[in-house]
Every structure is written in C-alpha cells, then in structure tokens.
Nucleic acid binder design. Sequence first.
DNA 1: CGACTTTGACCGGCGC
DNA 2: GCGCCGGTCAAAGTCG
Length: 330
Amino acid sequence: MLLMDSVRRAGCSPVCLDLSVGLSPSPLKMGAGVAAEPGRPDPPAGGCRMASSIADEQAKTLEAKLTQVSEENRRLTEKIAYLYANQIARLSPDSTDSTHASQAASPPPAASRKRSRDSMDEPPNSGDADGSGKAEAVESPPSDDFEGSCRRIKVSRVCTRIDPSDTTLTVKDGYQWRKYGQKVTRDNPSPRAYFRCAYAPSCPVKKKVQRSAEDSSVLVATYEGEHNHPCPTRDGELPSCATRGGSVPCSISINSSGPTITLDLTKNGAGGVRVLEAAGAPDLKKLLCQETASAEFRTALVEQMASSLTRDSKFTEALAAAILKQLPDY
DNA sequence: CGACTTTGACCGGCGC
DNA sequence: GCGCCGGTCAAAGTCG
C-alpha cells in the first residue's frame, strides 16, 4: 500500500502494480512494474520511468518502518509484561510458591470461590495443557505433588457478536462439540451451555458458552484445555471473522492464570482496538485503553496481522486465485 | 436407528 | 450440618 501510494504520488499509473502474490518465492510482492519477475515481459508502455529509484527509496522507507515497528513491538511487549507483573503482584501479594501449602489449609479470603473451582476443574490429564503431556485421557489418581495438581489448564475466552434473537448457544469455531449440559447461573439470567470436544473422544477440551450479562448480543465462549488433535476443518484454525451463517467471533481474550483482557477487534469504527474488559484488573484496563488507542499500537497490530497473513502460503495462494479471477485474461 | 440435544437429578466444594 | 452453586451425568426426546 505504501508503494502504491508513493507510486501514485509520483504520477505513475497504478497499472504497473505487480500482483504476483503467492506465485513466487516471495509470498506477497507488490511493487512497481519494473520490479517484475525474471522472464516476465517489460512493463507496458507508459509505465514508470522513475520506478527504479522509487523502489530503492521505498525499500529504505520500508526498512526504516520495519525497524520502527519492531522497536514499537518490543516496547509494547515490555510494557504489557511490566503491567501484567505489577497487576499480579498487586492482586496476590503473597503469590509465591509457598502459598500452595497454606492454600490447602486455609484458602486466602481474597480468592474467589470461582477461582478455586477453576483450578479444581482441571482434567486429570491436564498436563497436556502445556503441550508436553500425552494425548490420552487416562484417569490418573490425584498426584501427591500439590504443585503438579495445581498446574493450570489453558483457559481462553472468545467473545462473539450474534443476532440477539438467536437463542442457540453455538459458536462456530471449526471444532465439533457435543453439548452435555446447560445451567442457569446466578450472575447471569441467560443459561450457560457446556460442551465437550466431540471430534476426538480423548480430547480434554471443554467449552462453556453463555451470553454476556451486560450485552445479550455477545456470546462468551470459554475454552478450557488444549485440543490434542488437529482441527477437523480449516475454518477452525482460528475463530474466523469470515465465518458465514453463524456467529462471528469479534474479540479475543488474553488469559489465563492472570487477569483476563478482552480486546474487541471490530467495534471501533476508527479502526482501533477497544478493550472490552480486563477482568480482575480495572487499572490494567485503563492503561490498556490508553495504550490501544495510540496510533503506534494500531500500526503495530496491523503490521503484525499483515505479517501473519502474508507468511501463510495458503492465504497468499487463495488471495492470488481471487485476484486472478478478477483480472481479464491476458 | 444412531447421533445428538434437552433437562432434571445428582455430586461435591464452599460459605454460613 | 445445611443450603447454595457450578459442573456433570444420564435417561428421554428429537432429528436426519
């Protein structure tokens, strides 16, 4: 886009755009016509004469931008790590390893009932959660090692905007789920549905789906554990915003043993990111709101998303196919 | 007829 | 000890 913009500003025709997306070793290649691949015909007459110098200039610009974005990324990472560490320290001043033993004897008053339940719900084979365990869901007796039994399963939340009239508690994420229960919980008038992964019998993953208490048009899906099998459909590799005919995940949560931070990826019309909530850390939410509102954050986020997409050869192939479809035969 | 969903019953932890 | 609550079970019902 930067190149396109510069080329446009330089008075060159946009026809020079080389869209050899995914067809060359370089996954995404957009540039002026002179940057054509070897063996390809020269740019059409009327192409950019200044393209060579512009390409050099743009290469430098992009390089500088890459450095800047990398620096921003590093800075943001450090900042989030710092904020997170601060919050943890503030929320659990005695959160050291030694608390495990005392927790069994006398639970800390600040620890909510729910929190202790969450750790209790850990499946017997939840060692899988760190990816190092075996994939078998074999019942094993509780370990005497308290440290081991307290290991947290991976918990993540996905908020999904749905039609308020849609009463089905389904979130299409590509995996197959079997519903095994539904309950009305105290803090929310809408029922909570419980699902197990139905694709692999040994898969320990569970999912809870419930409408948000604040906004009934938002479904909150809580995933516990990690799948020990590949996703049955490609759509499920990520909760996809392109999902059709179903609910559309529109936000992500950063979890899991610490404060939950929910980012809304769609609601901000200005193209920014909105912090929906930072459970258990109101100050963190305030700070993150400031941070995500910044132009630097948006730029870094966009860069990172673009980078992830362009590294995915499947994506670039699909994009190339879609573009070729739109182009007249030549 | 098998797979899946629904829903009331049941279980175990926790607070009072 | 009792009641509340979240989570799970399992029989019955539904669907393709």
